[in-house]
Design a protein around this nucleic acid. Structure first.
Lengths: 251, 251
DNA sequence: GCGCCCGGGTCCGAATTCGCACGCTATGCC
DNA sequence: GGCATAGCGTGCGAATTCGGACCCGGGCGC
């Protein structure tokens, strides 16, 4: 049986960046889960969870981004939350209810450590640090969803694009993201042309540069200024709720 | 010490309708909380929680409706969830984080049983039925918020008004609700004129009748038909998640 | 009985977004 | 090297919503 330190070293070797939620756990807790993690790839565009389907695993991203999408009857979509290596996908597996009516899609390729629901549930029910951490994370997620809702109601497509870019950049290394305008449109629930228009304006102002599915950030502070307050509100709440733990450096 | 049955009888005497979340608890659990409940009035328009403020109590409505509102920098509002006697306000007190960035306002006058956070936390941490129930309820709330977000993105003001009316009616006795169009506009995050326009159309079609802040439902199935799917999706999910318990008769 | 004010109806132009369609171009594949 | 296609630009008209303003009518308080 390896020591918990060995465990951490092993995990660190496996991916350049770890999952901050897991890293925030006390070593003893992590130890009880050790051996049950299963590294998986998150290929771009793949579906982690289909809406309403039962799933058996939770996904702790270590790299890349997973989007939680809500789909309407007529096929329109809207992103209600994003999850990077600061979080976990599959909260219904410890919250109860087993399924969620939303879809989880890989928005930016990466990897995740996945864990069988039963394993996590067993530890969750013991009521220790893991439970506290996951519930706080869920609260942060709720904040993100709420803020997204008002944002959809009151802010312009350009403001929302800025917010979305910033949220994505926070969860990726570097200042570039690979994403076509069409996919961004699906995330924001608008037409591709609206994204094109907003993006051209940002490019004209020297905030970003893009070409054929690659977007490069040139002026981050400028983006933050053009974004609605929703970005800052959510980020601040993530820091507040997870500051002592995983999100300390979610800057 | 009264028996648990006494306890229930006492509580039933106090309000014509109880809180279904509490009623779904096993008598032993309710017994441990007995004596800590405090009946409070929910006067129309009063604020239960201010956004971002710390609070010490959870509110289990027995009558009336509480709206969770998100407020933007410029003062615009949008309702992200409603809570009636099937739920509880103040989930951050057991989820962790203490405060929420949303505001809770009494949308329809009524009453609630309130409980000090510490009392509930103590029982919550024991990990029994109470915890399971509250977490499932939180999942249902998340569904409502997610669906509200897409609804804001993709559905018309009229569809949203129908959805809102139906959700309110589900949480009230009778077929009438006291609410000015201006307040409905605040809830839906639209202008008063948009509500007026949609409401006149509904009235012209004989679905509702209204005058000076009183709205009467004349044709409920008609409203359901005109509403977007969001109403049904959320309701179904509430039933699924809470069916064995409180929401059995949330019809 | 009088006047105030709340709740609601209506008209206006402007802005935004929508849906659709067509055109351009660089990348990648054969 | 040629060609298909993904990614983006652009130009419509239509629909919706916005913001502001003004009006009316009925209930309430004085």
């Amino acid at each position: 049986m390896p020591t918990s330190w060995d465990c951490i070293v092993t995990r660190s070797d496996r991916s350049s960046r770890g999952n901050r939620l897991l890293e925030a756990l006390p070593p003893e807790t992590l130890q009880t889960l050790h051996g049950y993690f299963e590294p998986v790839a998150l290929p771009l565009g793949s579906t982690v969870y289909e809406a309403g389907s039962e799933t058996s695993h939770l996904y702790f991203p270590t790299e890349g981004i997973i989007s939680m999408l809500e789909v309407t009857e007529d096929g329109s979509t809207a992103e209600i939350a994003v999850v990077g290596n600061e979080g976990v996908v599959g909260i219904s597996l410890f919250m109860g209810g087993k399924t969620t009516p939303s879809r989880a899609v890989v928005q930016s390729a990466g990897r995740a450590e996945r864990l069988r629901a039963q394993i996590l549930q067993r530890e969750f029910k013991r009521g220790g640090e893991l439970q506290v951490l996951l519930l706080r994370y869920t609260m942060a997620l709720i904040t993100q969803m709420s803020q997204t809702a008002v944002c959809y109601r009151h802010h312009s497509a350009e403001q929302q694009l800025c917010r979305w870019l910033l949220m994505s950049l926070d969860r990726l290394p570097g200042d570039e993201l690979v994403m076509t305008q069409e996919l961004i449109a699906d995330m924001l629930g608008v037409r591709r042309q609206s994204v094109t228009e907003a993006a051209s304006k940002l490019q004209a102002h020297g905030l970003i540069r893009y070409a054929r599915g690659r977007i490069t950030t040139l002026d981050r502070p400028g983006l933050e200024q053009r974004a609605c307050e929703c970005y800052a509100v959510v980020k601040k709440e993530y820091e507040r709720l997870l500051e002592v733990t995983a999100a300390r450096d979610l800057v």
